[in-house]
């Protein structure tokens, strides 16, 4: 009995240690973002919002946030649309070369980001599209669509296959059935995909760095500040980015976990 309890306590401790390992740097960054000292040393100085004020008054940071917001919003909408179409064709149709099609659709996240960034830069500059905000969007859509597809595909797999046919059977055209059955059923997954792709795009550095040119996103400006000097502004920006992404991911996770009634 006591051996069992010891194991239980050990496992609990293990979980705590793992989470501490993962989150300690982020927590440290969060704590130091409110610390008055210039260098991250212990003991801490006094509490201050100075670093938040600094970034708040820095037009470059504002611009980066605006860029990131535009890019991630556009990316989320386009990537989710493409992901939905891919997931639906997979759900609905059987055709020659389907596994190749699916493999290709899921491929982008497996490519190292640096390679992807380089390749994107090469392609976009050749067609005269590099260094613009939309070049980041294009690159991020490629990167994010597979995530959207995976989430929506999961939801479609939970759907009673008779549901869409039942709509046709009751007089719905294919488009009507799409609007009246497929979209309402997949709605939680669609919102989850929007959040997830927005979060991925908001965080993404490597590809954005290659193709962004003068239109810097938040991760890119973080690196620039970091390259200049040690500046606790980074902690403040980092904390905001972390909270934004985490919120999006948690919302997505909650929506994905709302279980679909399989047969009703």
């Amino acid at each position: 009995m006591s051996a069992e309890r010891a194991t239980a306590w050990f496992l609990r401790g293990y979980v705590v240690v793992v989470f501490a390992f993962v989150f300690a740097p982020i927590a440290a960054s969060f704590v130091f973002s409110f610390n008055s000292d210039r260098f991250p040393t212990l003991p801490l100085g006094h509490f201050t919002l100075h670093w938040y004020e600094t970034i708040f008054n820095d037009p470059d940071v504002w611009e980066a946030f605006a860029n990131s917001a535009i890019v991630s919003a556009c990316t989320a909408v386009i990537a989710t649309f493409i992901g939905f179409c891919t997931a639906y064709t997979d759900y609905r149709f059987r055709f020659f070369g389907k596994s190749a099609y699916l493999g290709l659709a899921l491929l982008p996240p497996t490519i190292p980001l640096v390679i992807m960034g380089l390749a994107m830069l090469a392609l976009l500059s050749r067609i005269g599209m590099s260094g613009r905000l939309d070049s980041i969007i294009v690159a991020h859509v490629v990167l994010c669509s597979p995530f959207a597809m995976a989430v929506i595909r999961l939801r479609l797999a939970q759907m009673d296959p008779s549901l869409e046919a039942a709509a046709w059977n009751l007089g719905a055209s294919e488009w009507q059935a799409m609007g009246a059955v497929i979209l309402p059923f997949t709605a939680p997954a669609i919102v989850a995909a929007l959040c997830l792709t927005a979060a991925v795009s908001f965080d993404e550095f490597a590809v954005a760095w290659f193709v962004s040119g003068l239109n810097k996103t938040v991760p890119v400006i973080i690196l620039e500040i970091l390259q200049g000097n040690v500046d606790p502004q980074i902690n403040a920006i980092g904390s905001i980015v972390f909270i934004t992404s985490m919120t999006l991911v948690v919302v997505a996770q909650i929506l994905i976990m709302t279980k679909a009634p399989r047969r009703a």
């Binding site: 009673d160 008779s162 549901l163 046919a165 039942a166 709509a167 046709w168 059977n169 009751l170 007089g171 719905a172 055209s173 009507q176 059955v181 309402p184 059923f185 709605a187 679909a260 009634p261 047969r263 009703a264």
Partner: peptide
Amino acid sequence: LSPAERDTPMVWQTLALFPFL
């Protein structure tokens, strides 16, 4: 004719009721 073009409603084995309605 497509399913929508005929008036042959069906009661399904799974019943296929719409869970979101």
